[in-house]
Structures are given as C-alpha cells and as structure tokens.
C-alpha cells in the first residue's frame, strides 16, 4: 500500500504539471488581450507597454516563461513557498490571497459536503427501503426539485427569506473562524445548505439506486436466512456495498468544487477560489489562473487517491496496484 501511495503521489505531480501546462498554453492561445497593455496604465505609450512586458516577463519565449513559473513554484519567490508571483490585475502577491481564499472555499465545501452526506445518504437509504411508498415518492420528488432548481435562484430566495424577512441570519460575506467562530458559522450556514441541497438530492438518488440493486443480491438473502434483524441486515450487509461506489464520486465532486463554487460564492459575497478564478479569467490574470489551476488539480488528485485507498479498505476485492 505504501508503494502504491508514493506512486500515486508522483502521478499527482505529473497531473498537476500537465494541468498547468495546458492552462498556460490556453491562456496564450486564446486571443484574450495583452496583459501588459492593461498593466501599463490609462494612457500607455509604446515604451510603457514594453516596460510592462519586461516587468511581467512576457517578453520572454513561452518555454522560458513556463520554466520561470515552474522554478518559482518549486523554489519559492519573494512572497514565500510555493512561489506564485503577483497578480497582473491587482498587483498583490498571489500566495497570501490564495491561502485566505482557500480558507473561505474550504469552509464552504467541507461544511456543505458534511451536510449533503448526512442528508443524502439516509434519504437514499430510507427511500430504497420504503420503495414505492408515499415516503419514497415524496422524498424523490423533493430531490428532483432541488436538482432542477437553479442554485443562484435558491440562494437568492433563501437570502430574501432568512436574512431580509425573518432576520435570522447576519447576512452575506465571510467572517474568519479565528476572528469569531459564531459569526463564521452564522455566515456559512446558508451557503452550506444551498450547496448541500443540490448534492444531497443527487446523492440520495444514487444511494437509493445502489441500495435497490444491493437488496436483491444473493448475499442479502443469505443475511435474512441467518435470522438477522432488519436493522442488522441494512447496517451490516447492505450499506457498505451500496456506499462503496459513492466514495469515488464524492472525491471527484469535492475536488471539482475547490474551484467550482462560483455561484454560491458570488451570491453570498464570499471571496473564495471559484470567484477569484472567474475574476482572473476575465482580467487575463495569468498568475492567479495558474495558482487556482494547480490547487484544483492537486486537490482532485489527492482526494481521488484518498478515495481509492478508502475503497480498498472497505472492499477487500479491490487491490491497489
């Protein structure tokens, strides 16, 4: 297992490099405008633009520029390690902002993911066990609603109700946990719910489908033949095989959300990674784009590695190689 993990980590490095190269190339291939032009001020002269180009390193060849990016990333720069340079757009250092924004996005995703698993798995299990009853149809109907409802609409509606009309919540924005844990929680509860409802609905349907497959397996008939109680049959025999396929999906979803909670962040006015990536893409901000890409690629790789290891622990038929 140890050798497998090391090999997968090396593979992760490779994937991250590949993703960064692709992002780098796409940035220059797409006719998005010259970052130096923007950098040179309101009334740029030829000299100012040329100077800006030199300052930003854009005068060098593409391989040279990429090599510079890579050597700073690995060796660090004046802002620390890993070296990510400064934003073309705001001229602020990327690294400290990346850390701040990772905390915001991390808070949203981890809380939301916990919530959607806690809601989605039991709803799926109950629906499967009460198949074709009022409960099953009702729960699946609700799921369909949350899958179909646009996230921005749900988010705005919930803000209107819980913030403006009921006044239960303190409003939008993000309060760091270290500054005030209570406010951190109060500001995050709504984004968590919005994120969780969509995914809980998707996961409930998946868990239900898996459970329905599992309950007709021969080994479940064996479990009944052993005289086990219904609770034991579900908890000890049905749940594990029904949830095993969910783990891999959970890892991928979680990784994708690292750069993908754009709508939630925007509506709730939270300065997270998704939001940042959107701004960077709109402003030809290469260093920020590269930084977020590296983080997302690494997150997806490491989370799927964890999922694969977990799956091998849960299902003895899975061999890591």
């Amino acid at each position: 297992m140890g050798r497998y993990i090391i090999r997968r980590l090396l593979w992760t490095v490779f994937i991250v490099l590949l993703a960064s190269i692709l992002t780098f190339l796409i940035f220059f291939v797409l006719p998005a405008g010259d970052p130096a032009l923007r950098f040179a001020g309101k009334q740029p002269t030829e000299e100012l633009i040329a100077q800006a180009r030199v300052n930003l390193g854009l005068d060098k060849s593409l391989p040279q520029q990429y090599w510079l990016f890579l050597s700073r990333l690995i060796g660090g720069d004046e802002y620390g390690w890993p070296g990510l340079g400064y934003s073309f757009h705001t001229r602020d250092a990327v690294l400290p902002e990346l850390i701040d924004r990772s905390r915001v996005t991390g808070s949203i995703i981890v809380g939301g993911a916990l919530m959607w698993m806690v809601i989605g798995v039991p709803v799926g299990v109950i629906s499967a066990l009460k198949r074709k009853t009022f409960w099953d149809r009702g729960l699946m109907g609700i799921c369909l609603f949350f899958i179909s409802a646009p996230v921005f609409w749900l988010a705005l509606l919930s803000l209107l109700i819980f913030w403006k009309h009921l006044g239960w919540l303190p409003g939008t924005g993000y309060v760091p946990f270290a500054q005030n844990p209570g406010q951190w929680f109060a500001h995050l509860i709504l984004p968590w719910c919005i994120l969780a409802l969509l995914y809980a609905a998707i996961y409930a349907r998946l868990v239900r489908a898996n459970m329905i497959d599992v309950v007709s397996e021969d080994y479940i008939r064996t479990a009944w033949a052993k005289g086990l109680s219904p609770r034991k049959v579900v908890m000890h025999h049905e749940l594990r095989p029904a949830l095993a396929p969910i783990i891999a999906l959970f890892a991928i979803d979680l990784g994708a959300l690292v750069g993908g909670t754009i709508v939630t962040e925007t509506v709730f006015n939270m300065q997270g990674l998704g939001n940042w990536l959107l701004i960077a893409a709109n402003n030809n901000d290469l260093p920020v784009t590269m930084a977020v890409t590296v983080v997302v690629a690494a997150a997806v790789c490491i989370l799927t590695l964890i999922a694969d290891v977990l799956l091998a622990i849960i299902d003895p038929r899975v061999r890591l190689q």
């Binding site: 080994y219 594990r240 095993a244 299902d315």
Partner: peptide, 9 residues
C-alpha cells in the same frame, strides 16, 4: 450460487 451468496466485503 456460492459465488454470490457470501457477502463479498
């Protein structure tokens, strides 16, 4: 079918 009658996990 003893292949499928035992719990695989």
């Amino acid at each position: 079918d003893p292949m499928t009658s035992l719990h695989p996990m």
